Amino acid sequence: MSIRKLKADKIFDGRNFLTNKILLIDENAVVAGISEDNNEDDVEIYKGILSPGFINAHCHLELSHLKNQIEEDTGLVDFVSKVIRLRNFDKEEILHAIDVAEQEMYNNGIVAVGDICNTTDTLVQKRKSKILYRNFVEVLGFVPQFAQSRFDGIVQNVYEPFFAEMPDTSIVPHAPYSVSDEMFALINQHSEGKIISIHNQETKEENTFFKTGESKFQDFYQLINTNIDFFQPSGKSSLQTYLPKLNLPKQILLIHNTQTSEEDILFAENLAKENGQQLFWILCPNANLYIENQLPNIDLLRKHNCTIALGTDSLASNHELNILSEIQSIQKYFPHLPKEELLQWATLNGSQALGFSNLFGSFEDGKTCGVVLLNEDFTEVKRIV
């Protein structure tokens, strides 16, 4: 069996930077170990940092046709309204945009993706993909009496086609403001022991909606001709309102978190511990800046040892699907964060969030994690393996 020997200024193994080491990759692109640098002749030498391939823990690949269709800084409520209005593109245009966007992710060193699915539009692409996907089939339905019919429709029309080919697929709630208690109960039961995600506290309007009932979400439901007179605010933040309703999944990916308080973090982490669950806090900084020009309090998440991973969101809310670009934005606003920590969020933590750590995220024997080359200032990424 032939072995490629790769050397760079540094090797990031998923947790730490290593120097004077050689990364061994076999002919099937499987990690065969890390050895000492003994000045052998048949070593490929690179300038920069060798890292495992990146994990995009949150994406909406099916919205790729909406690139540059929605202006920046609209606020979340207006953004969601525009996504709903713009979904009906020609099918061929949608499929072409998906193909182009996925190739972009591959070129940017992404090896695995947690992808939100409201349709089966991405299924054709995923059948032939070099990227591994965990599909999150998203359910929306805020009116209680329609919960069962909406849930059954999604199961039949989206979940079952994905599950038949990709059994890791799970059904997930869209967001607290778009899922009724009855729908949460159906999702919770269906997702027992599984990995799910939810868009969490992406706008201050979300917390206001649950604390007082008065927010721009009232206008949103009027816009889509939905009567929500039944809704009674809990008087609590959105996270503290909905999270107790999701006690059966084994892992929950909390997406965005721009309005998450210290009280929310402590509540969520303590509840997860009681339930034997693991939480992952997924950051999509470029989408947060695009939609509301805000960022989560990353230092607060780090203070409480939250497990952080990174996502890109969709091309409706981002200019590119590139995890390195997300890292660059974090560095701009949080320049004190160690590079090793940022890379761990992009690799090992992301693989754990998606349940793929047996394959990706770190240079450990037997993994097919891919290899990317970064320059020292984190401005360029190139796929090596």
Results as ranks from 00 to 15, higher is better:
Q259G: 10
T260L: 14
T260Q: 02
E262A: 07
E263R: 11
F267D: 05
N270A: 13
N270T: 14
N270D: 13
E274H: 15
E274P: 12
G276M: 09
Q277W: 02
Q278R: 15
Q278A: 12
I282S: 10
L283H: 11
L283E: 10
C284W: 08
C284G: 04
N286T: 15
N286Y: 11
A287R: 08
A287T: 15
A287M: 01
Y290L: 08
Y290W: 07
I291K: 02
E292V: 08
Q294G: 06
Q294E: 14
L295G: 03
L295Q: 14
P296G: 12
N297T: 12
N297K: 05
N297E: 13
N297P: 14
I298F: 05
L300I: 07
H304Y: 14
H304Q: 08
N305H: 15
I308S: 03
A309E: 08
S314K: 05
S314N: 09
S314V: 02
L315E: 04
N318V: 05
I323Q: 00
I323G: 02
L324N: 03
S325H: 11
I327L: 10
Q328R: 09
Q328D: 02
I330A: 07
I330V: 07
Q331E: 14
K332P: 06
Y333F: 14
F334W: 13
P335Y: 03
H336S: 13
L337G: 07
P338R: 09
K339C: 10
E340P: 09
E341S: 13
E341C: 06
Q344G: 04
N349C: 05
N349A: 12
G350K: 06
S351Y: 08
S351W: 01
S351E: 05
Q352S: 07
A353C: 09
L354S: 02
F356L: 14
F356W: 05
N358T: 09
E364N: 10
D365P: 01
D365W: 06
G366S: 00
G370H: 03
L373N: 01
D377M: 00
